[in-house]
Design a protein around this nucleic acid. Structure first.
Length: 279
DNA sequence: CACGCAATAT
DNA sequence: TATATTGCGT
């Protein structure tokens, strides 16, 4: 009576550990995350440079935030679209030389409105987040959570909480969930897996065999053996520092449309980061 | 208020 | 195209 708890616990830990990148996989915070070409391609100011002091301070901040529960500083990184303006890159790839500095024009307009570009740690209020990009990794997390919750209990709020990806809102999940449900419905017409060429994302993600239904009172089957009464079946591994890719142009160097394995592979955020900076 | 879904907007 | 937003019924 209750011996299952132990097993499930260790299993959870194992799964959790598997999901974690090793120290070698993680790019140290003190390193420039974005290659110069990428940075310039995306109009990201090269001010990603951080000294060890900065990193240290950020770490302390995070730790205190975790320990104290309420940290206070919430650094939501985002790339703000000026308007409907497009920027062109006159030149890129400067042959030799590690230093290709490109300073953005400094606006001296401190009039009234029309200045919302600077956002560091100030209260993120009424600020618009960039579109969330559902990478295969994010989608996998999503599918996993939905599968573990059971379609019945998979509601946006819960999914959002279990995914534990900062920057993600309930609306983000709701929107994606809606599309996901449509995809599932479409697919059920076919007896077996018939990955349509459309919906690359969904097609490339293994859908849980059958949409489990738990907590419906009828546990007579016996297939799903892990029905816990806890409201939260499985809190997801705290993302190392995985930020939802926000504001990334879609025409980046995407691979053929196949999954990537590494969390650290192909992940680069504009600038600034919020490790578990709860909302 | 949160949810689900269709329609619409960006 | 992929997401976001909105509107409406529940």
């Amino acid at each position: 009576m209750g011996e299952e708890a132990k097993i499930t616990d260790s299993e959870r830990v194992t799964e959790w550990e598997i999901g974690l990148p090793t120290g070698d996989d993680i790019t140290p915070l003190s390193h420039p995350l974005i290659p110069t070409e990428l940075a310039s391609a995306f109009s990201i100011s090269p001010e990603t440079y951080r000294t060890l002091l900065d990193v240290n301070r950020a770490s302390n901040d995070t730790i205190s935030a975790i320990l104290g529960g309420s940290g206070g500083s919430q650094a939501l990184s985002m790339v703000v679209e000026p308007d409907e303006e497009e920027e062109e890159e006159p030149d890129r790839e400067n042959g030799s030389g590690t230093e290709s500095r490109k300073l953005r024009r400094l606006d001296s307009a401190e009039d009234a409105d029309s200045v919302m570009l600077n956002n560091d740690d100030s209260s993120a209020r009424a600020l618009k987040r960039p579109r969330l990009v559902w990478t295969p990794q994010l989608h996998k997390r999503f599918v996993d959570v939905v599968a573990h919750l059971g379609i019945q209990n998979a509601v946006p709020k819960t999914i959002m909480q279990l995914m534990n990806v900062d920057g993600m809102t309930r609306e983000n999940v709701a929107s994606h969930l809606q599309k996901y449900r449509l995809y599932l419905k479409r697919m059920q017409g076919f007896s077996d897996n018939a990955p349509s060429s459309t919906d690359q994302l969904f097609a490339s993600t293994p859908v849980p065999q059958r949409l489990q239904d738990s907590s419906a009172g009828g546990c007579g089957g016996g297939s799903a053996g892990h029905s816990s009464h806890a409201p939260i079946p499985m809190p997801y591994p705290p993302p190392p520092h995985m930020m939802a890719m926000l504001g990334m142009p879609h025409h980046v160097f995407n691979n053929g449309g196949f999954q990537q394995r590494d969390w650290s592979s192909g992940f680069s955020y504009p600038h600034g980061l919020t490790p578990s900076g709860d909302k």
